[in-house]
Simulated assay, not measured.
Amino acid sequence: MGLQHFTRFFDSPYFFTTIKNTFVLSLYSLIAGFPIPILLALILNSFRHKKYRKVIQTVTYAPNFISTVVMCGMLLLFLSPSVGIINNVIEFFGGNSINFMAEKSYWRHIYVWSGVWQGMGWSSVIYFAALSSVSPELHEAAIVDGATKFQIVRYIDFPSIIPTATILLILSCGSILSVGFEKVFLLQNDLNLSVSQVISTYVYKVGLIDNNISYSSAIGLFNSAINAVLLIVVNKISKKLSGISLW
């Protein structure tokens, strides 16, 4: 077939919208979700009360073990315009009920911030591992010199996790067009389709529903190629600027 399916995808009326939605959603998730696990790890690592720290860690880890289907069911229930607790609170204070899942302006925020809440605890584990390698003698010396907790975090803890954070950022940029299928598909409906149609759901519809396997495979290959190029470019930029890279 040559490049026929690729040309068909580029000429498709869904091309620009699908690429735009995928890129915006993934970039928004990266910007919102990447720094929060770092901040959580730094804050909890500065706690001196181990009991409270373990409780907070357990609470933040727990959402990660909720399945995607259950998570989406919870979101649909909480945001329901008739029985949802969010709308009940809004109406209690004199506001009008909002059909959140039908409003395009709310959909991306719901998707991204629910994902941040679900994954921030688990994502912070690797930063805790990096912080555990920091010598206690550095903290003791800083305390003797009169450093505050903020200064200890800023000048000792934060620099120690920069290499780890850089590697994870490179890997995240290498999958920036690979938005997960399950959650998007479960939260998607005809009213928010203009902002929720991403590459993964489009491939599902044209490949499995329309039974056009060759066309969907070409789209998937295009997605993988773009991710590979982004990974190589970001890796080179990181190596040039900080000396930290995957290879």
Rank of each mutant, 00 (worst) to 15 (best):
L27R: 09
V70Y: 14
V198M: 07
M74D: 12
N21L: 09
I66D: 06
S82M: 14
V83I: 15
F222Y: 15
Y28E: 03
Y14G: 07
F9D: 03
F158K: 05
N223T: 11
I90L: 11
S160M: 02
G73Y: 09
P63I: 11
S114H: 14
S26W: 07
L42Q: 00
S172M: 05
T148L: 00
I226F: 05
L77H: 04
N192K: 06
T60Y: 15
M71Y: 00
S216M: 01
S82F: 03
I19F: 10
N211A: 14
F92M: 15
F181E: 00
K104Y: 05
N235W: 08
I110F: 14
F34C: 00
R108W: 03
W122A: 01
L221D: 10
E91V: 10
R108N: 13
M120C: 14
T166D: 02
K50T: 06
S82R: 08
L131S: 05
G94S: 11
L131V: 02
S132G: 09
Y28M: 15
L131E: 02
S238F: 12
I98D: 10
C72P: 06
N189T: 07
L44S: 04
I152H: 00
V70M: 12
T58F: 09
V89G: 09
H5F: 12
I152P: 01
M74K: 10
K50R: 05
Q188S: 13
I162F: 01
I170S: 01
Q4E: 15
L30I: 09
V153I: 06
K205S: 11
F34I: 04
V144Q: 00
S172T: 05
C173R: 13
S12I: 06
S80N: 13
F47Q: 02
A228T: 14
V206R: 09
F15W: 15
Y202S: 07
A141P: 05
S224T: 05
K205A: 05
